[in-house]
Design a protein around this nucleic acid. Structure first.
Lengths: 186, 186
DNA sequence: ATTTATAAACTAATTTAATTAGTTTGTCAA
DNA sequence: TTGACAAACTAATTAAATTAGTTTATAAAT
């Protein structure tokens, strides 16, 4: 019965379904198995149960985000690089509403998740370097920047912004205000 | 068997346990019932099952946050009011790591949750008014401010900031940068 | 061509959690 | 003292995840 199902295909399908549902925790192994035309226990040949699936999805999401950021920022520096990073971060969240939430959990020391996280962090530091920031200064600002991005998109995805007011404008305004704040201080 | 157990006591105990566990979804009805010395089905006399409990905890959290903000800001205006609001928001999150996450979900139109949310929003608008912002301008900035706050504290609670670098400093820096950004534009 | 090893499927059974149905029992008010 | 009700209970059901043990298709080795 060795079919052509792989771990990658399982995770890919899980991501699709989770994004369709809008929340990864609404996806049940029963639904995933059905979508793959197998029985639930057969999933255990590919992922370590529900928890293992979540882990795999987290790695999937972090990898994809890292790729998107690097593509979006390529060739840009300073304000333009920061804005491009911000826009692609938000685009990633919109395209992945169901699994987005998985990216905020820190990885265990030594884990794959931690490795990818550090990778993305060092890339962000590179951008801030082009912006004129370094050392602890830059680390504080990376935290701030991540907070902005995560806060906005997670509120957006959760439906936390109720008013009838353009979200693109709110987002751009937020990033611009923050960037000009960075300049005001330095 | 009419004991002196009330819905308030059930919700209060649930909040304690959830905050102790650090994630409301790790709290099982079995554990809550045990802590209250009753059997699981008896919980249904007080809350509408697991979902009803979550709703009640959300209202509990939103109400508490609204109170804390009003207390913290009382008598302050401008920069000082914004900073006080930010610090008390973060303090709320630290004191309520398990149920904090519940506050970001928007309420159904007409619901209690929506009512409290609007209340807090109008209070924040009041602060921004003292800061010199009004209209759509102010609404965009409220969104930005909420994003900052939520982003920072949720990353913090989830362990998303891995580096050995003072978090209080990162937070204060973030708020200050943003405020000076607001001034730079206006 | 046949055997053998293995990966990946399966069925069946168990565990945990939430829920529903129906029953019992204190307390309070008529 | 009786009757109503709220709040507890037991027992049974449903849903989901997991584990154990079995079967089977493919692919490599004789």
């Amino acid at each position: 019965m060795a079919r052509d199902l792989t771990k990658e295909k399982v995770v890919q399908k899980a991501a699709e379904l989770a994004n369709y549902l809008g929340d990864v925790h609404q996806l049940k192994l029963k639904d995933l198995a059905a979508a793959l035309n197998i029985k639930v226990p057969s999933l255990y040949n590919h992922v370590k149960g529900a928890d293992g699936l979540i882990d795999a999805l987290r790695i999937h999401a972090l990898t994809q985000l890292d790729d998107l950021l690097r593509d979006a920022v390529a060739g840009k520096i300073g304000d333009e690089a920061l804005m491009a990073a911000a826009q692609s971060y938000r685009a990633f969240a919109h395209a992945n509403p169901g699994i987005y939430q998985l990216i905020i959990q820190a990885g265990e020391p030594g884990s794959e998740v931690e490795r990818i996280g550090r990778n993305t962090l060092s890339f962000l530091l590179l951008i801030l370097g082009s912006f004129g920031l370094a050392g602890d200064e830059a680390l504080h600002v990376v935290r701030g920047f991540r907070s902005l991005l995560h806060g906005f998109v997670s509120l957006e995805i959760a439906g936390g912004f109720e008013l009838d007011l353009d979200l693109d404008q709110s987002f751009e305004r937020l990033i611009k205000d923050y960037i000009s704040g960075l300049k005001a201080v330095s």
